[in-house]
């Protein structure tokens, strides 16, 4: 060992349920997004309100040939198969998310690791973290033991805002479920508004995935991916100035 340097500190970063459910959800979210894009291609227009069809004004139209095949599941146009994938995965995600919430809420993961401290949500602190991230300077040493505030806010946003919004707007598109919960139509302003919000929220999840994967690559992919598989995470050493 070179005098003056410290041995890398390895910590246990993620608990087994977090790691397991991360990979189940990662696979399912990828596939549910892609099957959703195949379903979207059956009518690649978004409307607002209770009704909306080709004879009505659209908010957004994706011209022919729609979303390219490499981004859809299956890769060819197949509404029936895409719907089977989509609803099967939706059920898996309902069960895996419920399990995750149960474990994380009662096991303390949300309180301990995800909820930011009061000092962390001070605008100056967030601005400081944002500036460091933009300069690709990430927390090192002891500061890397815990999620930073940008991580905390984006994880909380996906788990407690986007996921419930996607579930609720998805259910609002079901004519059967609408009969049971007509208030959903009032809440979202109609089935077609719900469809548009469902699509928008899904695109935000896709954006989250892009940023998330970029951060993994920038922060040291082997260390990051290993920590989500075995739990072992080596605290990044502080860069010498």
């Amino acid at each position: 060992m070179i005098p003056g340097t410290m041995a890398a500190t390895a910590i246990k970063r993620h608990t087994l349920p977090t790691r397991l459910l991360h990979w189940v959800n990662a696979l399912c979210v990828f596939l549910v997004l892609m099957s959703g894009l195949n379903i979207f291609n059956a009518d690649p227009r978004l409307y607002w309100g209770q009704f909306g069809a080709i004879t009505d004004k659209a908010l957004l139209t994706i011209g022919s040939p729609g979303i390219p095949g490499w981004a859809t599941l299956p890769t060819w146009r197949d509404l029936a198969t895409a719907r089977h994938w989509h609803f099967f995965l939706a059920w898996v995600l309902i069960f895996s998310s419920a399990l995750y919430l149960l474990i994380s809420l009662f096991g303390g993961h949300v309180r301990r690791d995800l909820l930011p401290a009061r000092s962390e949500i001070a605008p100056s602190h967030i601005a400081h973290d944002l500036w460091n991230h933009l300069r690709l300077r990430f927390p090192t040493g002891e500061a890397a033991r815990r999620y930073n505030v940008l991580q905390k806010l984006s994880y909380l946003g996906v788990i407690f805002l986007l996921a419930p919004l996607i579930l609720a707007t998805g259910l609002t598109m079901s004519p059967g479920f609408d009969a049971a919960c007509p208030w959903l139509l009032t809440l979202f302003g109609g089935r077609q508004s719900a469809r548009t919000l469902h699509f928008g929220a899904a695109m935000l999840v896709a954006l989250f995935i892009v940023v998330h994967l970029t951060m993994v690559v920038l922060a040291g992919p082997l260390n990051e991916i290993r920590s989500m598989i075995t739990g072992r995470y080596v605290l990044p050493a502080a860069k010498s100035e």
Binding site: R45, F51, R191
Partner: peptide, 12 residues
């Protein structure tokens, strides 16, 4: 009532 096509559109 609202008519919902499997393709995604609705008409009342």
């Amino acid at each position: 009532t609202r008519h919902d096509c499997v393709e995604g559109w609705s008409a009342i």
